[in-house]
Design a protein around this nucleic acid. Structure first.
Lengths: 254, 254
DNA sequence: TATACACCTTGACGTAACGTAAAGGTAAAG
DNA sequence: CTTTACCTTTACGTTACGTCAAGGTGTATA
């Protein structure tokens, strides 16, 4: 079972150049060199190449692959785990890029009016940034790429009238919320009305509504200080109160 | 408002080498060259560099950026949309890599017994492959990265006893299902028992159960011919019947 | 005014993992 | 013996710069 370089390459589905390169960088040496200087590969090389290709498939650099397969003290699991972290970071970066592309596509296609209302622009910018930078990673983990992508697109595609509606609803919600807080009971009618308005408000950004996600967001208002600060601006404890109201509203308080 | 190269670079947050390179490849020429051969940049260059950096942030190649910003006939929206497709493809590829890494990590950490039961291995392999290749992209879009990642890990971490349980439950489900089909009513007791067993079966793969997702999977059995073929193997119409039963079971049939 | 020091120039090598010639030796077939 | 197929090494091209190196320029200070 000995092969010259092209036979070996075809067997493994790589190019002969690749094999010469692997020889050059010392990651895969041929079994021997014959009298004419030809590289001769054997079954042992078949196995080793399989290994190399396996790690290569995972997007790992040849340098690291060499570490794994040559150094006996090297821990493959650790290397893999480290590699996994890298891949996750890449994915996060890609997600951000995609969100940005969606954003500028929306602008390019004229779905959003390029300014004339700066607040409006800033508002959308902020929403998308929030979506991505602040809790984009977590949200994508929990709700999925499509959900977050669509949410971004929905925001970016929003007209100024819609924007006005959103603003009105948010104001109504805050009003109901402060009434509820005056009563002090998140199960009270104004508090539940606030929770319902909050649901309405969310549907402007979300593609589909679920109680679980609603409750999750409400919890986040408490957990993430940036949101807490936003809601507690007028009155401390508002974020927490809203969360309680929403948890009752969604029935996720048990 | 004229700048020598380093001032301009600092203003824009790039290196002077970058600016020389951009000059070299003709993507951003200085406004003029002074008597000593120094590159002098003006406000026009500031704007153009902003543009370049914007597209660069999106991961676009400088060559394409040049096309966009120099050629007047070039459609930026089309280029962006094409770029978006590329990014999505990259993300899919990354997702697959991560799944593979998880898989081999499971093997490396000994969570799965390396062989001695070939069927078992093949079974897990198949499940993971299903998860990824068949509807991995869709599932990730719908349920999120974390959900699918965890599902894969759960399968790979499964012991042989668990595997036996899973198999038993699936058989029980199929039995109940055929009884239900004999009756012909997806609301009948055996059919509902099948739906319940199906839920149990799913929890072996899913990190968390929701009615919506359960109903979604059942629908997929009908929509995706590969699954339809699997369920209809014994008796045609089984996939559809199971879907109906699950939709009743989850209350998603209204 | 001499000099130190900051800033500019072009040229060129290095990076990762090969693809792609080019120039020349070898094996097998006709 | 020639053609053809296959092998060898050498070396440039790819992307977007980082990093010297060698040498010219501008300005503040001793």
């Amino acid at each position: 079972m000995e092969y010259t370089i092209t036979k070996f390459a075809k067997l493994a589905g790589v190019s002969s150049r690749t094999l010469r390169y692997y020889d050059e960088i010392g990651i895969l040496k041929p079994a021997r060199i014959n009298s004419s200087g030809y590289r001769i590969y054997g079954p042992e090389q078949v196995n080793q190449l399989q290994q190399i290709l396996f790690y290569r498939e995972l997007g790992m650099e040849l340098e690291k692959i060499r570490n794994i397969i040559t150094s006996p003290t090297f821990d493959p699991a650790e290397a893999l785990s480290e590699h996994r972290t890298k891949l996750l970071a890449k994915r996060t970066k890609l997600n951000k890029m995609i969100a940005s592309v969606d954003q500028s596509l929306a602008a390019a296609e004229g779905r959003i009016t390029m300014s004339d209302n700066e607040k409006f622009e800033a508002f959308k910018q902020k929403l998308v940034d929030d979506n991505e930078e602040k809790f984009g990673e977590e949200a994508r983990e929990k709700y999925g790429d499509e959900t977050v992508d669509k949410s971004n697109q929905k925001v970016l595609g929003m007209s100024e009238e819609k924007y006005a509606e959103v603003n009105r609803i948010e104001m109504e919600m805050k009003e109901a919320l402060s009434k509820g807080m005056a009563i002090g009971d998140p199960a009270s009618e104004p508090a539940q009305k606030a929770a319902d308005l909050h649901r309405k408000w969310l549907t402007y950004f979300w593609d589909k509504y679920t109680k679980e996600a609603h409750a999750g967001v409400a919890q986040m208002y408490v957990d993430d200080e940036r949101f807490t600060a936003y809601y507690d601006h007028q009155q401390p404890g508002t974020a927490e109160f809203l969360r309680d109201a929403v948890h009752i509203y969604t029935g996720m308080n048990s």
